[in-house]
């Protein structure tokens, strides 16, 4: 007997009428003028940029989050382990200065746009600063390098602290970068912290809290964790690709967890977002099974004893490791 199955594909047409409260005045991006950057104007100095997204006012009430976040590399995102700061200088010398059309002949020519190839993720708020801030960053990097060379610990520490004074702090994740789809969800407003709920927020500088539709989603992290070449730049860069790997190798084929599930919740690390340098994360990452045995292998008259070592590994993370 044969069964004939007829499938009906219903095409559902959904029409949504959005009654907008905002009024279009012919400009692209309604509400852009409400952002922290638009309200305070572009930063002219590193100190001004640090102040624009200063998270020190959050400490008094969110001490726990602050203590955790300080341990994460996000709190020193252009210094990193030191390798990041060094590589930004390599980028200037082996990248920008060698590229014939970059407009950079010496570190003195480096502008915000040149640094955005890195700052896009390592310091997104650099986009809210004037070129003088790019110059201040470059000078600080070279001061740091010179101090290290001279073994001047005091000067090196001073430059290091300046480099760490701008970072991915509370207000980058909970305000500036809390909304990815700005034409749908609106621009992040000054005076508002974005999290999981709407309402009043008992802080003088940030009297409101609002829902960020992506705070618990992978894209919140993914906006800085790379998918491959950053094609929107005049000179594409590529660094971290863990979001790309997550999308295509993990989410598509293996599992449904979000970055936050593994890195913040299951790890119990909260805002202390870590990689393998945390023993718990390292342990969670790879199953490593090995067996070894010996025997006399023979081929015709030839006898060659050997040991066979078999290794089986399964990466339990949500992306390829290591990333590069």
């Amino acid at each position: 007997m044969k069964l004939r199955v007829t499938g009906t594909l219903a095409l559902l047409a959904a029409t949504a009428l959005l009654a907008g409260t905002a009024c279009a005045d012919g400009k692209v991006g309604i509400g852009r003028q409400e952002t922290i950057a638009a309200k305070s104007g572009k930063a002219k100095t590193l100190a001004e940029l640090a102040k624009m997204y200063d998270s020190s006012s959050c400490i008094e009430c969110h001490q726990d989050k602050y203590d955790e976040a300080q341990k994460s590399i996000h709190s020193r995102s252009i210094y990193g382990t030191g390798r990041t700061a060094l590589t930004i200088m390599t980028t200037i010398e082996n990248g920008l200065m060698e590229e014939p059309y970059s407009g950079v002949k010496s570190p003195k020519d480096v502008k915000v746009e040149h640094l955005m190839g890195c700052a896009k993720c390592h310091l997104p708020q650099l986009a809210d600063a004037e070129d003088s801030v790019a110059q201040e960053l470059v000078t600080t990097l070279y001061d740091w390098k010179a101090a290290l060379k001279k073994k001047d610990k005091v000067a090196a520490k001073k430059a290091e602290d300046t480099l760490k004074s701008v970072n991915i702090g509370c207000l980058i994740c909970h305000n500036r970068n809390a909304i990815t789809h700005k034409w749908q969800d609106g621009y992040a407003k000054a005076g508002v912290v974005y999290g999981s709920k709407d309402g009043d927020h008992p802080s003088d500088k940030f009297p409101k809290m609002a829902v960020s539709p992506i705070m618990g989603e992978a894209i919140q992290c993914g906006q800085c964790h790379g998918m491959g070449p950053n094609m929107e730049l005049d000179e594409p860069t590529q660094c971290c690709t863990s979001y790309g790997s997550y999308l295509w190798a993990y989410k598509s084929e293996i599992g449904q967890k979000n970055c936050q599930d593994c890195h913040m919740k299951e790890s119990k690390l909260g805002h202390n977002i870590q990689s393998y340098r945390d023993p718990g994360m390292a342990k969670a990452a790879v199953d490593f099974k090995t067996e070894a045995f010996g025997y006399y292998w023979r081929d015709g008259a030839q006898i060659r004893p050997k040991a066979v070592v078999k290794v089986e590994m399964i990466n339990r993370a949500g992306h390829s490791i290591p990333d590069g």
Partner: peptide
């Protein structure tokens, strides 16, 4: 690197 969720085998024959 190691792809997520997939078994990767390595074998060594040491004489």
């Amino acid at each position: 690197g190691l792809p997520p969720g997939k078994t990767v085998n390595e074998r060594f024959d040491i004489f």
